[in-house]
Design a protein around this nucleic acid. Structure first.
Lengths: 159, 159
DNA sequence: AATCCACTGGGCAATCTGTTCAGTGGTACG
DNA sequence: CGTACCACTGAACAGATTGCCCAGTGGATT
């Protein structure tokens, strides 16, 4: 569950140069190939590394507008709302949060005008009582994990 | 910028089996290896595929608690707040949204108790006027992109 | 009709992968 | 103190994949 410094370096290396192979990694890290391979296998079966899926940019796909919608769900309708929103391609993420039947929903759209269509489609569903939307303007810190990985590796070292 | 059906299938295939190689992909898709290679190069230089970084699970790293903090920033302090929050490892993402000096901040913590420490560290910064936090309980739709890719590919076909 | 472009199918050398093996050092435990 | 376990090293092997090049084909553009 906890990762050590070598694990951390493997993840960072992988993040910087995803195309890198196990052999090249072992060379850069100064350890045997088998070691890197074993660490990688362990990290993956641990669930620390979920996978290496392609990171697709919605903007490049023609969806440059991102928004967050806070939804208030009618009592007992949670499951229905979830199932429905899962079918909407523009819903990139859905989370339930503290608060009375609240959900947070990450959306994308082709334009500000198109966002209206998406929102209508989302909040038009029966079971959603109220919704408030905030459009994302800038993304000063894009979704990242490396600093946390380094922190986790550091914690392990200091034990 | 727009992707066609083959591009879509490449991305989906890559998402399902990230370890797959270009050769195996060409076999599955029934096209020449060179074609897949060319498409992949194009998708990457287009920016549609940003990369293949490892997807790390914060929970497996020992940070099972996720929260969103809505921050209200004092006029003119935006840049300072961004720079500061970028230095906090537990801040996984930071976005500026519509609303007077509002930011949305994705956080993780080791526990609910630890979340207090993280929040203090985040909102303790001068320049943040007010903050409200929502703890994530469930994640019915984890961050995804495939449905949107399929939608984009479909749009292209129907032209 | 000429040109451009994407795709095909083939071939090549160089490289990497998956796997196995024996040997070494550190550590936990009886 | 001895044994067992574990992680790491360094090496080897066949098989597969990669990056790269080429000529030929078919469709679309000009």
């Amino acid at each position: 569950m906890a990762i050590d410094h070598l694990d951390g370096r493997i993840i960072v290396l992988l993040a910087e140069e995803p195309r890198i192979g196990v052999l090249e990694m072992s060379r850069r890290l100064g350890v045997a190939r088998g070691t890197v391979q074993a660490r990688l296998d362990r990290l993956q079966s641990n669930g620390v590394i979920r996978g290496f899926g392609p990171q697709v940019d919605p903007a490049a796909l023609g969806y440059p507008v991102t928004a967050f919608a806070t939804l208030q769900i009618r009592q007992g309708q949670g499951a229905d709302v979830r199932a429905y929103l899962a079918t909407v391609p523009e819903v990139l993420e859905l989370l339930t949060t503290t608060g009375s039947g609240d959900m947070l929903c990450r959306l994308v759209a082709r334009s500000n005008a198109d966002l209206q269509r998406v929102i209508d489609r989302v909040v038009g569903f029966d079971g959603i009582v109220r919704a408030s939307t905030a459009i994302v303007m800038e993304n000063p810190v894009p979704l990242r994990i490396i600093p946390l990985v380094e922190q986790a590796a550091r914690d392990r070292e200091e034990t």
